[in-house]
Design a protein around this nucleic acid. Sequence first.
RNA 1: GCCGGGAUGGCGAAAUUGGCAGACGCAGCGGACUUAAAAUCCGCAGGUCCGAAAGGACUGUGGGAGUUCGAUUCUCCCUCCCGGCACCA
Length: 868
Amino acid sequence: MPQQDNSEIATAVNNARPDHPDRSSDDRYDPQRVENKWFARWQSDPQLYAAEPHSTKKKYYVLEMLPYPSGALHMGHVRNYALGDALARYMWMNGYNVLHPMGWDSFGLPAENAAIQNNTPPRQWTLGNIAKMKAQMNRLGFAYDWSREVTTCLPDYYRWNQWFFLKFYEKGLAYRKKSKVNWCPKCATVLANEQVVNGCCWRHEDTRVEQRELEQWFLRITKYADELLRDLDKLEGWPEKVRTMQRNWIGRSEGTLVDFKLDYAENHTGFGPAGSTISVFTTRVDTIFGATSLQLAPQHPIVGDLSADNPDLRGHVDRLIAEQRKAKEVGDIGEIEKHGVFTGRYAINPFNAEKVPVWVANYILMDYGTGAIMSVPAHDERDYEFAKKYKLEIRLVILPIPSDQEETIAEPALPFTAHQGSLINSGPYNGLECSAAIKKMSADAEKHGFGKATVTYRLKDWGISRQRYWGTPIPMLYCEIDGIVPVPEKDLPVILPDAVDIANAVGSPLGGLPEFVNVTCPKCGGPARRETDTMDTFVDSSWYFYRYTDAHNDRAPFDSKIAQYWFPINQYIGGVEHAILHLIYSRFWTKFMRDIGLITNDEPVERLFTQGMVIKDGAKMSKSLGNVVSPDEMVARYGADAARLNSLFAAPPDRDLDWQDSGVEGIQRFLGRVYRFIEKYAAPESPDWREPVPERLSDSARGLQRKLHQTIKRVTDDFQERWHFNTCIAAIMELLNDANRRMMEEHVEGEKIPLTFLAEVQRNLVLLLAPFAPYLAHELWEMLGEKGSLLKASWPKYSPQLAKEEELQIPVQINGKLRSLIVVPADATEDFVVERALADEKVRSFIAGKQIVKRIFVPGKLVNIVVR
RNA sequence: GCCGGGAUGGCGAAAUUGGCAGACGCAGCGGACUUAAAAUCCGCAGGUCCGAAAGGACUGUGGGAGUUCGAUUCUCCCUCCCGGCACCA
């Protein structure tokens, strides 16, 4: 189109259609006006988004991870909830009975910190924050069923934490044992791991955190380690990344336990538990004839015994412990230099009765396996490094299997760590292949009573005791006569008392409250002491989504039948930072609940989606960087719809999103264009508005109709199958652009688009937009004269027939390079299309004088002529 | 070290998984409207080169090879970035 025409069209388009009253620039889309109007309407109907308790519809449970009530939402929340909200609305429009609840993960440390800093009770601070954030969520227009709201810091919720704890205890899955905790000498209290910064107290940066042994409550998650691992294979709706992270975390390892007997001391007979056993764990028992030393973790109990009367050894061991701890604090235990010390003692290898020296080494971890290994320098990198340094014997016991070409077996380079090979220097096992040897040797060890095949896990039991105030009290009592006594179920909940001095507490703050601590034993009636620790907040979030199904039940955590209807969660959405802890605890809890007959599902979540982070200027938003974008500010400047739409449009949901204000401005322009498109052309009062669309349409109208149906297909497909909301929105933009262009051409060229068909386009455009920009969509729906609620209006359907192109532009390649485009009927035959292609002028000039070797025709896609 | 995910214009990205690379949007440029600005609307736009222009040629999806008529897509090797696990025996 020549340049001069542009101005003419621009002018024309700027004028209203002649058959409409002139609408001037006063009609500019004002998001605040529209959103405030609908906000008020939605607030006045608390049942608007309620899930139906009894329904014949198919259910859909969509859930976003519940927030910690810090006081304000951030853009990461907005992105998370915009995703879930779009999905919930889409499923409503597709006729599902949707459960879309929200709640508050409201126990935890920040409330205590705030209490100390502002002198506000944690409860007050927390509930105030919840009110603020709930208001933000509502203003953003998220469609939550608030009648099911769960607030984990309230007794009607946490009493069931206590109830579950008693069940765990009953089943022997809650137990108490001594365990190391972080202790700050200045605070005189225990710190959570999160409160330890570079090995120092977060409040006293110059004070090193000490390790103290305390009695702690543990939940036996390791009982489910194998099932938790196995069932990961079933979770096909989960990201591979998360499944891998959980597999790593569980860290299953098959191997063999072998007992070495400690030999009698040679030179110093006066001490040392001669004849006691050192159990080692190995995955390579096939290499045991190559074991030339044992290596013990410095914290190993036998090391303690051996060094008790040996100050020299004690000194060495203490240094090894210190080195290990330092490396752990820095976080790179893999990098420290290996050190060790010979204990002066020997142990007997039960396979060949050989005496091997017993060492203590800083690279052996007490909390993995048995804290002791057999060192096989020839077949393990670490052992090799250590043996070289301390000149220990290196004995080859595995040879590589020769390849077909090789006549003789070459000596392998050391260390030779491959699992394929055959045994030498291994007595009766010589000649066996590694995996066969492992099986046979494990079996033999078991037969002779000095070992057995076993499985170890990296996963540890879950320590849930916290020496903190703002959490669920652990419902346990300690009686001088009866020992550990659970609080009887009928006495639940154990209420968390309000008046507690957190700031000056020594140890658990609840311990400073005699009226809380001192109780009578329910068994003997004598004096007893209450447990003063509270539960880890991950307990709260391990089962909260079951509570949503029956949030007001005061006889049980929830009704089994109701939970069975809603579970598993169809779609769970949240940040990948919860990929391990929260999601493993939740899976564990579900399996336990199944085993006590509460539910029937094995897994809580069918499909999991982990959205990317919201970043700004290439960095995670944080107060210290000053790159925080506040949702409130976005709502005030651009409106909730624009803020939400931008968080869906700027990147596909699984990728990190770099927030740019200019992007929101673009979205706001788009929403303005949608508004004006409806505003300008809608004529619901016209008698033609609701007439059926005529069979025959003008070319331009037919083109728009095709675009409409193609768009419905694209948005539906991208929503349903791919979750690419960015392309959904792009498709809607294209439809709008196409419609606007055709209306403009109609005006210029006088080619009619029937009003009744225009109405159809407008209705569908609004429907497509409804899950993403609910405020504007509702406003436009009303402007189109629609009476029913948009929330549950039917999602549009497309007609494949009407979406079909009648003519296609077919690229013609010559030797794979695009040379021309030809237009052919959509149903043209191969012969027809190829003939047309060959007749094309440009094509002819390219193939002139050459020989056609091959013609490739891909129906509807392209023609490729191969010439030589 | 092992595992997972990435790399496409100035920027965010798209390409319905082997078939026109860059849709849609941002930023940019030109134009219309306006006294002017804002807002709005129309148009241009990967790079290099040829051409006054219309148009054309070459080149281009982190790098290198390969398979194929045809590769952002498949195979192999390499580089860099993000995430997880890690002296795990």
